[in-house]
Design a binder for these strands. Structure first.
Lengths: 345, 345
DNA sequence: ACATTTTTGATTTACGTACATCAAAAATTC
DNA sequence: GAATTTTTGATGTACGTAAATCAAAAATGT
């Protein structure tokens, strides 16, 4: 059996109360006694039973998740994962509140952060918009001892405790290597379709993609970036025009969300198989397009992993514990039609 | 606050003892009373505090992990993950024992399963060897109410409760698509390097790879399979001979373990950049080769995920609970040099 | 209506830890 | 060496559930 506080008390020749004082570093223990107890802890290999401790403490973790509203499939999937986490709240002693905000709206986000602040949670997870006033709001939360984790989109310089998301430069580089190699057998330029260059993750992906294309495939021309605002209608129009303008187009890298317009344009022009298409985020739409061959590869960040990681980190930070950064790193998944995971319920 | 057993008792107008009888379906409760209690549970939305229950029960889960011995990097990594899980035993209430067996030795595995049986654990996880006597040994464990999960390599027809590993046919297909597309710009045949066709996962990978090559890239010739027994020296000799014999070789798919010989042969012949190489399992060796460009892509199964999933499933089965199969599905990771996760300590 | 069986209630102890209180002992100060 | 402060011990309660015991009540059979 694993040792308990009683065993430590017996081993160290002190009372239970003293062991408790040492374990929870309460005052009023001589350093000699403290040493005795700590030696007993070490030799017996005692580790506190966290479950029992939490039960006794009645500890719970009120968290607020601030997520963009709208019909972005990825974000809705993310929200679904947070809901799943809420369903697990009972056993994880968390109390999660979701606060929706308009997408890409720094001012609304600042207000949401302030509302979250008023609730006095132990931690806040937020899909950040890259703006100085948002960073300022995050700083205020941190100043009040509230842990803050950025989710999916980071906010460097805000003093956030952690970023639960992928390395988007690496994601862009991965897309670049795949694009270069998949289109190796033919000529023609590559187009890049973004949502908006005002969003940090899109900028990072472009940076990585461009770098690899320049380094490894210098012969292949890169067309100027097209910004589709993640709007299906606008994207379809732009991609349609692009395909007509560039009959020899070899590939399209879509680094933003809203792939519906892209897929529609490709399928309507009958170019879906000849143009190599690489997109981001596995959603019902991109999954279908991958299966049909319209999209050739999808890079994905696992929203479930991100949410669970964010919660783990928030808990640790709320308790003042260290986080093993390497363990919380979110991987970039590559999906081809052959390794698609089964659709979940 | 979430409701407790006391709240149910009050709501249902019965005593605590009766609530306990219903919750743990002990005998001696009229169906009318049982209904009252169950309605109270439903309306209050009571969920048992698993931590408190486990504390009260003093529940723990003795498990045995049977792993192949030898210097296979992947298997050593797997063992490391099991060790990590042992370190977490305290908080997870598990007691894990590792039983090493000689690799690919059905007889030794049967003996190990029998030894595991004698320990009367709540569950056993085993890297299976595909042989009828092994299946028989697994059946005996199951017959005694011991949960069995196959790890990495499955054993269909043994009645095992679950398989914690990847779909190797899909993995082979994924490799096929990558190979076909990566070598799209040039001619030449493709070679397949296996460990042994006696092992199930190798057979499955070959099946998937061959199928995709035949379906999608029928023009590309496939050379007869080379079996290197996962032995670095033999593999290097065979690959060296292969490269000399086939000067126009476009790609090599290495679907087994022991990539050291492969990498050595490629680098010594100076063909490392011209031959597209796809291998399995991310180990220090394959990672280095990926980084240097000798290997172009690595398909990986996350050993940590597999071990943690196996433990979750064993726990659930030991408690007679259902498993959400979709949630325990292990993904096939694709790594290029651009999306390599950082090396862990 | 009585005996018998079944069902229910009341109460207690336990799991391992947290936390509070009060008294006792030891160390410190003057 | 007495007064004071600091340190330690003893003890109890709590968290939410499990599990046991024994008595009381209700249902059942005859």
């Amino acid at each position: 059996m694993r040792p308990t506080v009683h065993d430590i008390a017996a081993k160290a020749g002190v009372s239970l109360a003293t062991v408790d004082r040492v374990l929870n570093n309460r005052p009023g223990v001589r350093s000699i006694t403290r040493d005795k107890v700590e030696r007993a802890i070490a030799t017996l290999g005692y580790v506190r039973d966290v479950a029992a401790a939490n039960l006794a403490k009645g500890r719970n973790y009120p968290f607020v998740f601030i997520l963009p509203a709208g019909d972005n499939s990825f974000m809705r999937g993310l929200e679904g994962e947070v809901s799943d986490a809420m369903a697990r709240s009972a056993s994880e002693r968390t109390q999660i509140t979701i606060l929706p905000v308009p997408a890409f709206d720094a001012q609304a986000l600042v207000q949401a952060l302030s509302e979250a602040h008023q609730r006095r949670p132990a931690g806040v997870a937020v899909v950040a918009v890259d703006a100085p006033e948002v960073a300022e709001a995050v700083k205020q939360l941190r100043g009040d001892g509230i842990a803050v984790v950025t989710l999916v989109s980071d906010l460097p310089g805000s003093g956030r405790d952690h970023f639960a998301g992928v390395d988007n430069i690496a994601a862009g580089r991965t897309a670049g290597t795949l694009m270069g190699r998949f289109t190796g057998g033919r000529g023609g330029p590559i187009a890049v379709l973004a949502g908006s260059m005002l969003v940090r993750d899109h900028r990072d992906r472009l940076e990585g993609f461009s770098a690899v294309m320049a380094e490894e495939f210098p012969a292949r021309p890169l067309l100027p970036v097209i910004e589709g605002q993640d709007d299906p209608v606008l994207v379809e129009k732009l991609v349609h025009a692009l395909i007509e303008r560039e009959p020899d187009l070899a590939g399209i890298y879509s680094l933003g969300a809203g792939n519906r317009g892209l897929v529609a344009a490709l399928e309507k022009t009958g170019k879906s198989t000849t143009i190599c298409t690489i997109a981001h985020e596995l959603t019902p739409h991109s999954r279908a397009a991958l299966r049909s061959g319209t999209i050739d590869a999808v890079l994905n960040q696992d929203a479930g992993h991100e949410v669970r990681s964010a919660i783990r980190v928030l808990k640790a930070k709320a308790d003042g514990l260290a986080v093993i950064e390497a363990q919380e790193r979110i991987r970039i998944d590559i999906f081809l039609k052959d390794n698609l995971p089964l659709e979940q319920a």
